[in-house]
């Protein structure tokens, strides 16, 4: 299979998905205990898109994501301990406690960054690709965004320019079926959003968003196209949001009947099944155990980290003098 992940890569994808899932579950517990601040947007069930998508990129490629981006953070190789620290408002967090869970950024892994304005990541990735093109660099940029963001005006503007200028950018549309509480079909006249690619003169395709290999392959192929200066690709990864919009979501609009088939197709379970065939179920279980140790250590360390001390941000100041 062209552009398919190696076994080692699949194992790493699996590990990062488990890290992400456990991150979400532990955070969910802390949120229930009132130990987190603000809303948390969990990506349970969507791990394959962010993790496998990012794993198909190189370390120096750029990626930006949404308010629901923990899988992209972990997928791009960010340190879970510093992710947790940021979410818990600590000095050791990626933004020294300034950002919170929706707005993490890490230039060292090219994850710049989370963005809580729906749709904002799409032109952001296009702009990064523009920068790459102007500087003639061997990189690509990728926006991971949702079906809700796909309906913004800025998505159109950015994709139009990306297609026009053949920018080295990948639009990874993570269709989790919901824009907050409103189902996708109430927001768009078409069921498949990837067909819009045709209007921008770029290839568009649909993949199973819960299948890591499918996601990986699609992104790897799009990246290769971008590196060849053949321009952008729109990939629609169909998946499902298992934990509601956020920790402040009252729920009630996602039925059990609707969720059950997706639960059966949990991306981690699917990944474990696939991997077991190659490396055996024991090795797969070891990955999970190691991931558990790592995530527990990440929380233990992060929660012991100090809170930041407030300092006025001089470059933001209104006056030349203090």
């Amino acid at each position: 299979m062209q552009n398919a992940p190696s076994i080692e890569e699949q194992m790493e994808i699996h590990r990062r998905m488990i890290l992400t899932r456990r991150l979400e579950e532990i955070l969910g517990g802390l949120a229930k205990d009132g130990k987190t601040r603000g809303p948390l947007h969990r990506c349970d069930g969507q791990e394959a898109v962010g993790v496998a998508g990012c794993m198909a990129l190189r370390a120096n490629d750029y990626v930006c994501t949404t308010h629901r981006g923990h899988h992209v953070y972990v997928g791009k190789g960010m340190d879970p301990r510093r992710i947790v620290a940021e979410i818990m408002g600590r000095e050791t967090g990626y933004c020294r406690g300034r950002g919170g869970h929706m707005l993490l950024g890490d230039a060292s892994t090219g994850m710049i960054g989370g963005n809580a304005i729906v749709g904002a990541g799409i032109p952001a990735a296009a702009g990064m690709a523009l920068s790459i093109q102007v500087m003639k660099e061997d990189r690509v940029a990728m926006a991971v965004f949702g079906d809700g963001a796909a309906q913004t005006g800025i998505a159109h503007e950015a994709m139009n320019m990306a297609g026009l200028w053949k920018l080295p950018v990948i639009f990874l549309l993570e269709n989790n079926q919901y824009g907050l509480t409103v189902r996708q079909e109430v927001q768009s006249p078409v069921e498949d959003l990837f067909i819009r690619a045709a209007g921008y003169g770029m290839p568009g395709l649909k993949v199973d968003g819960n299948d890591v290999v499918a996601v990986y392959q699609a992104v790897a192929e799009a990246a290769a196209r971008a590196r060849r200066n053949d321009g952008p690709t729109l990939i629609e990864a169909k998946t499902y949001r298992m934990q509601g919009f956020s920790t402040s979501d009252m729920g009630g609009y996602q039925s059990e009947a609707e969720m059950a088939p997706w639960r059966d197709r949990d991306p981690i379970r699917l990944s474990a099944e696939t991997l077991s065939k190659s490396i055996g179920s024991e090795a797969v279980a070891e990955i999970a155990e190691a991931a558990e140790v790592e995530i527990q250590a990440a929380f233990a360390l992060a929660l012991a980290d100090p809170f930041p001390v407030f300092e006025f941000h001089r470059p933001s100041g209104a006056y030349t003098e203090v």
């Binding site: 904002a120 990064m128 500087m135 800025i154 503007e157 950015a158 139009n160 320019m161």
Partner: peptide, 25 residues
Amino acid sequence: GRIRDTPISEQALTAMAVSAAMTGT
């Protein structure tokens, strides 16, 4: 490449200026 005529897309253009600036130009 360095002097570009653009479509009429002020929203995205400005956002792209921001992210392009973040990534080295």
